[in-house]
């Protein structure tokens, strides 16, 4: 288990001077990548905020080998990198195992990249995929995605007089990844560095495919103050909107159980994107939201009990 003090002494994979928004929590996980493991790593990123803000030529924030090619293909691209590592060792060109990491936002992961992700996991590459889920296509200016929660206002699901925000529940990608029966699947949050670093270390070092879904609040997209990312993520977990759990070889483990499960409105009403839901006119959306969160939490508890 990584020790935060020891970790902080190691070089980060990601330099300061990157151009992520003020208060953006995404670099919390990118800085951890080299600090949690002694393996040499190669990182690939899908097109998105992280890619754009970390690599404006002639600068790069990446202090490890890094590659980006397109939006929907990071898993396939990193499959190629991983396959070459296998061949190099088979041909005795190298005796050093390289660990491959793919990153993508929810757009590049839940939506346009899900085919490539699913196939790479099915093929069993030794690859950790990290999704930073901020719940919309933030890089192109806050459009709804398959990960956008019910009721959220985005630029393609605006609050109108007839329709207010996204009308559909989000898809549960973590469960889709569990259904791939890969060695390791986890949900984490940027507000909890100990849990997050444990999971990233496990995901990197495990032999075979691994997937980690990280809740990453977006300052402009969620319409929160720049100092509120960590608090917003914490509330997401304390309301059980985003349970912290991991599934190792199909065994479920809930990593954190809130002392008191807060109502989802505690999370919703601290974000500008849900502000309209305070109007009674849309109370059915809030009820549906709570119902889904409760069902998901009950499902998770049952899974944990069943696989104990």
């Amino acid at each position: 288990m990584p020790n935060l003090q020891e970790m902080a002494k190691k070089d980060s994979a990601f330099s300061s001077g990157h151009r992520m928004c003020a208060g953006c929590p995404v670099p919390i996980f990118t800085k951890m990548l080299t600090r949690v493991t002694d393996f040499d790593i190669v990182v690939g990123s899908a097109t998105g905020c992280l890619e754009v803000a970390s690599s404006i030529f002639p600068y790069s924030a990446w202090k490890v080998p890094w590659i980006h090619t397109a939006f929907e293909n990071v898993s396939a691209m990193m499959s190629g990198v991983e396959a070459l590592d296998k061949v190099n060792r088979k041909k005795n060109k190298s005796d050093k195992k390289i660990k491959c990491i793919a990153t993508g936002g929810d757009g590049g992961t839940y939506d346009i990249g899900i085919q490539s992700l699913s196939a790479a996991m099915e093929r069993g590459h030794d690859l950790l995929y990290i999704c930073y889920d901020n719940g919309a296509y933030m890089n192109t200016g806050i459009q709804r995605s398959g990960a956008t929660p019910l009721g959220a206002a985005t630029t393609t699901s605006p609050v109108g007089s007839v329709i207010a925000g996204k009308q559909q529940q989000r898809k549960d990608l973590t469960r889709i990844m569990i259904a791939h029966h890969i060695p390791y699947v986890a949900q984490a949050s940027i507000h909890n560095p100990i849990d997050l670093s444990n999971k990233i270390k496990k995901g990197i070092e495990i032999d075979g495919p691994a997937f980690i879904n990280i809740l990453c609040p977006c300052i402009p997209g969620w319409r929160i103050a720049p100092n509120m990312a960590v608090e917003s993520a914490r509330l997401g977990v304390d309301t059980c909107f985003w349970p912290l759990y991991e599934v190792e070889d199909q065994k479920f483990k809930i990593n954190y159980t809130p002392k008191e499960k807060l109502p989802v409105t505690d999370w919703l009403f601290t974000q500008g994107r849900f502000r309209h839901l305070k109007d009674d006119k849309w109370s059915h959306l809030v009820e549906d939201f709570q119902t889904r969160v409760d069902e998901q939490w009950d499902w998770l508890l049952a899974c944990q009990t069943k696989t104990e």
């Binding site: 080998p65 890094w66 190298s94």
Partner: peptide
């Protein structure tokens, strides 16, 4: 090469 970890390169940067 991406595998030259002693001399890390960034491939596919944003080019304006």
């Amino acid at each position: 090469s991406l595998f030259d970890t002693d001399k890390p390169v960034s491939w596919g940067a944003l080019d304006l």
